[in-house]
């Protein structure tokens, strides 16, 4: 989400308008998505608070787990996001201070604190974590950062490949393998899904506990990016995982 509009990015830039966030969330809820994350990609950069009104609005009809990320930097914000009816709070920029992750996990239980590990590969291939919507690199490897976040109290990681974001070229499976093996908490892989088979592949081969997607669920297909919100039905998800 950016500026109150739901958008889909490519490599964390070139936002493409998808629709109204509440309407789209409503559709995913009706399609019985297993979990929904809403990320406000401009909140930190613009120094804005979460839109609590919008979060409370979704909570009135969403009957699946819902996570929010964007602009989170204080414990009061964490408390208010949960009070608005979210189950999980996603932290990225504020996680550069591990003490914040620890304090948040102590407040809510670690199961509610998800750290988004946003990764871009260096020219030599090293996976490097970024913060502030992918604009600031950290001076360590993605795996080291992921481990530190789990030690600090993160209950789950959203492992987001910036390189693959919106590309619809498949997940960065080796990245997922590396991070998922290194940590003891569930890893949600995101960034790059092109087909529904990719969702199963990143779980089976990559060792992720869950596969998330944006473009795959927003567009008709990779070669024809007309907005057509879609989500595989339960029996399809089961057969993919067989």
């Amino acid at each position: 989400m950016a500026g109150g509009r739901l958008v889909k990015t490519r490599q964390f830039s070139s936002p493409h308008y998808i629709g109204d966030p509440v309407n789209t969330i409503h559709i995913f809820n009706t399609l019985r998505a297993e979990e929904i994350f809403l990320l406000d990609i401009r909140a930190t950069v613009e120094g804005r608070d979460p839109d609590y009104g919008l979060l409370a609005q979704q909570a009135r009809f969403v009957s699946v787990p819902f996570g929010y990320g964007g602009g989170i930097r204080t414990l009061d914000q964490v408390r208010r996001v949960l009070a608005a009816g979210c189950e999980k709070v996603v932290v990225n920029s504020a996680a550069t201070d591990p003490a914040f992750v620890t304090a948040a996990a102590r407040l809510t239980g670690s199961q509610a604190i998800v750290v988004s590990v946003d990764v871009r590969r260096d020219p030599d291939g090293m996976a490097r974590p970024y913060v502030r919507s992918g604009s600031h690199a950290l001076n360590e490897s993605a795996t080291t950062f992921a481990r530190r976040m789990v030690d600090a109290g993160a209950g789950e990681l959203l492992l987001h490949s910036i390189d693959r974001d919106g590309s619809m070229q498949g997940y960065d499976v080796p990245l997922v393998q590396e991070v998922a093996t290194a940590v003891s908490v569930p890893v949600i892989a995101v960034g790059g899904a092109r087909t529904r088979d990719d969702l199963a592949a990143v779980i089976k081969q990559g060792g992720a506990q869950a596969a998330a997607a944006g473009a795959l669920f927003f567009y008709q297909k990779a070669t024809n990016r007309n907005v057509l919100v879609n989500y595989p039905e339960l029996h399809i998800r089961r057969s993919l995982m067989r």
């Binding site: 409370a56 909570a59 009070a83 009816g85 189950e87 407040l107 809510t108």
Partner: peptide, 9 residues
């Protein structure tokens, strides 16, 4: 702290 919102809905 908690999910009063989801439960009451």
């Amino acid at each position: 702290i908690g999910n009063f919102g989801s439960v009451s809905n």
